[in-house]
Write a protein that binds this DNA or RNA. Sequence first.
DNA 1: CTGAAAGCGCTAACAA
DNA 2: TTGTTAGCGCTTTCAG
Lengths: 337, 337
Amino acid sequence: MKGTTTLKDIAQRLGLSIATVSRALQDSYEIGAATKKKVVQLAKELNYQPNPYASSLRRRVSKTIAVVLPEVADSFFSLAINGIESVALEKGYHVLIYLTHESLVREKAILSEFKSGRVDGILISVSEETANGSHIREIIEAGVPVVFFDRVCDEVDASQVVTNDYECGRIAALHLAQQGCKRISYLCTSPALHISKKRMDGYREGLREAGLPFRETDIIVCGSSLTENSRLVEKILRKKNRPDGFIASVEKLTTPVYLSCPRLGLQIPEDVKLLSFTNLQAALILSPPLSTITQPAFEMGATAASLLFKSLDKKKRHGYNERVMINSVLIPRGSTQ
Amino acid sequence: MKGTTTLKDIAQRLGLSIATVSRALQDSYEIGAATKKKVVQLAKELNYQPNPYASSLRRRVSKTIAVVLPEVADSFFSLAINGIESVALEKGYHVLIYLTHESLVREKAILSEFKSGRVDGILISVSEETANGSHIREIIEAGVPVVFFDRVCDEVDASQVVTNDYECGRIAALHLAQQGCKRISYLCTSPALHISKKRMDGYREGLREAGLPFRETDIIVCGSSLTENSRLVEKILRKKNRPDGFIASVEKLTTPVYLSCPRLGLQIPEDVKLLSFTNLQAALILSPPLSTITQPAFEMGATAASLLFKSLDKKKRHGYNERVMINSVLIPRGSTQ
DNA sequence: CTGAAAGCGCTAACAA
DNA sequence: TTGTTAGCGCTTTCAG
């Protein structure tokens, strides 16, 4: 942004007005073919790049979207980013990325900035602390379309892309029951989270259908550190009425189970079975290979972005929105026999 | 960006000039405490958010940086993004993310856009196709500071943050040799890549020090699909002079080895040892647990960002740059006995 | 087909 | 301490 060439430079060099140059570069129909060619050529020669901020200011659009995520910790969000980026690129949009680190305060701070017109739309997966969506509604009311993906805020009227969390919770429980589990424990990090609740509800329903009792104490709320979580899992496995099956509702809760079992002389899947929500390729090479519920992470990201662009195109903003569900799949492997 | 309040609105409501309001909000020393208070309060009330693009246009800075990555595929880049974001946030900068998908054409297209002033600085990890850095040099000459991280382009004079790839390649070979390997194969995806070459050079040196011969045929260039790579590894393991040790210079090349060995009745680490460059937590729970060379991904991202902000602060742009190396660590586990 | 002119919202000289 | 004015680079009426 130093010796940058501007429209003015081109205009002067060619003895044209700035307006003409601008129009020529936009391939406006009302410009002579001859001048158009001249302009385009000189622009290329001088390596002209329009100043995006001047243009945004004038046009009142930024050609930029924001992606607001809790973290880029697990494989789900990594893949989702790829999906989002691929469609943004295609549409000629730029992608700003923000991490909330699961903090509502941060999420609010980030979103409040968007009333300024920095972005034309927002993709968000809410933090675990986000219970009410007033800060999100505010943004929508300010005219910036929002699309939720994965972690939604149901009370807010906006487009969303989710996966069948309830159904997967149910399937998970049923699958384990079918494999002979009598006591299935559910590992999660933040039970308040919408998707976590869905999965848990599904899990309860699955237990019911399988004729197994639900016990409050089988819901294990884990923390963030690996050692902490391992200790927790070991404690449970030492009980006399220990579970014989685990559902890890979050990728990172897989590790503590694989770590704890051998320490206590327990075998997977003979003594303890495990089924995890994860997209890790490494599931294949764990031993035994990990049974997973794999989310369509890339597709969810891409679909969310498409939905956002749809509402940007149509300027339908207020009112029109879509709710899409893309199914996850259960892939049974050795960890559930 | 509809009913957005502007400086003008505040000025009118308060009977002040726009300039005064602007200065008051910037806490300028030349504004009376009384008016300052009035202005700030009304701004808060009206939920005023300055238009960033107007401000960028005028000030000629965007408070935005670009992060250009090959992909968000492996754990390294995920962690690096977290590192970058954390320091950008602290400095009040916004982060645009771009993926090259290992394509030089894309990388060029992305970078050429940055001559327009969209970003104040760039963090980049180059694509595997990037051999010469002319497109990057162009950007730097246009006055936009660039910091390389991990995958650098040595011929370009810019700040960079790398890890000790050469040394790690060497250590890797020595470690395997020490554990008894006689024939160590090196798995990589793109041998042209700078860091890949460094690691490979280190590997050769390691072999030499260990008194093992280097064989061109022990360098295995893999592709991107898992099945393809597994077939490749199996083919090698079927040879009569098969390797008894592998170095996976890329995270995703771990899987084919873990997959192929049991298929051929080979045991890790008894028959085949494996050491991988990876940051995956799952290394802990593979069986046997995977020996790794773990890169300081978060720190590298954070350091690169710090370096960038340093050159932004000091406007030292041209000329002043720093080269930082942060060491990776070898963590021996079961896969190398 | 082309040009003149206004203005997007903000900042920063220069006045007062 | 505050206001006036010019202008960042671009788009877009409105004239010609």
